[in-house]
């Protein structure tokens, strides 16, 4: 099972749920910036939730399948076509060998995850297939995909095989078949301003009460200098009461750092495991999918919540994901 990259798109990389256990050696966690989209896309094609998939940013790739394939994409909306026909988000697609899947521009968000039944088969490095481009680690030769690349997919799970066989029995002579159902993903709020919930960080108390108020009440703009390492936020300048020398310490995806310039940086999955700036807050894990879809120029506002709220939100998200997973199973078996 294999496919060829005809056109790579803007930034297409192999990602799974990330690389745990190697941060003490300076190795970043990486992984899909939108882990919910990765899980859903994987389930839609019968993969385990941690299988490696393609993360697409801004503009997607054109892929030529050299064998029959079962694919699905989740996350941001994307203009996608097979054989000239539009194909929807959150819907399993059976694609005949020799056909081309064109993932066009991403809209209503920034990142789309494309899963392929069997998962992208690249060698695991330190326990993960995720690409960390900066250190040329993992993924497809440690880099973003390029036109001409030839990738293979892994062995199909029983679920994938069964569902592919079912779809294949209905496809007739068509070049592809979309399932007669699709997933309604939980949508972000349709307002231009996104509220991101955070818990206080180790250095929150080093912000003056006034700076804390500014942090809570201001609208911040997503800078164009944002990538998988972090999102730079513009529009406020925060100063610490006492900005003494700080020693490098651990940081995580979701940490909001305050460099001396006073403009916060929200770290994402490709961030280094350690950093020396003040850690004023941390995004709650349940809001990670919202952040993955931020585009430069969009505005956000922070709401400081308690750890209990963070836990409750995560519990609700896990329950919703569990419900979606059961629904996907049921559809794959009965429709």
């Amino acid at each position: 099972m294999s496919f060829r990259v005809i056109r790579a798109g803007q930034l297409t990389t192999v990602q799974d749920l990330g690389r745990q256990g190697a941060q003490r050696w300076g190795v970043s966690v990486s992984g899909a910036i939108d882990p919910v989209a990765l899980r859903l896309a994987n389930w839609l094609v019968g993969n385990s939730e941690s299988a490696a998939a393609l993360e697409i940013t801004w503009v997607g790739p054109d892929l030529l399948f050299e064998s029959d394939a079962l694919v699905a994409y989740c996350g941001a909306e994307c203009v996608a076509h097979v054989a000239g026909q539009p194909v929807p988000r959150g819907c399993p697609l059976w694609i005949r060998a020799g056909e081309r899947l064109s993932m066009g521009s991403v809209h209503r968000g920034a990142r789309t995850v494309l899963a392929i039944a069997g998962g992208i088969d690249v060698p695991p490095v330190l326990g993960s297939r995720s690409t960390h481009v900066r250190s040329r680690l993992g993924g497809f030769h440690g880099r973003r995909l390029m036109g001409g690349d030839h990738l293979t997919v892994g062995e199909l799970s029983e679920d994938s095989t069964r569902y592919m066989t079912l779809l294949q029995s209905r496809v007739g002579t068509s070049s592809f078949l979309r399932a007669n159902w699709s997933l309604h993903e939980p949508e972000g709020p349709p307002v231009p301003l996104r509220v991101l919930r955070v818990i206080r960080g180790a250095h929150w108390d080093q912000l003056s009460p006034r700076a804390q108020q500014t942090f809570r009440e201001s609208s911040l703009t997503v800078s164009s200098q944002s990538d998988r390492t972090g999102i730079r936020l513009e529009g406020i300048k925060l100063t610490l009461v006492e900005d003494s020398d700080r020693f490098s310490e651990a940081v995580v995806c979701g940490t909001i750092q305050l460099p001396p310039g006073g403009q916060p940086i929200l770290l994402l999955a490709d961030c280094a495991p350690t950093g020396g700036y003040a850690r004023i807050a941390h995004l709650i894990a349940a809001d990670q999918p919202l952040v993955a879809q931020l585009r430069p120029g969009e505005t956000v506002q922070f709401e400081v919540v308690t750890m209990d709220v963070a836990r409750e939100q995560l519990r609700q998200q896990a329950a919703e994901l569990h419900r979606l997973r059961l629904m996907i199973r049921l559809k794959q078996e009965t429709s």
Binding site: G201, A202, E249, V251, C253, G254, H282, A285, M307, R311
Partner: peptide, 8 residues
């Protein structure tokens, strides 16, 4: 706390 899943 370092987020919800780590402690420094």
């Amino acid at each position: 706390l370092l987020g919800e899943f780590a402690v420094t």
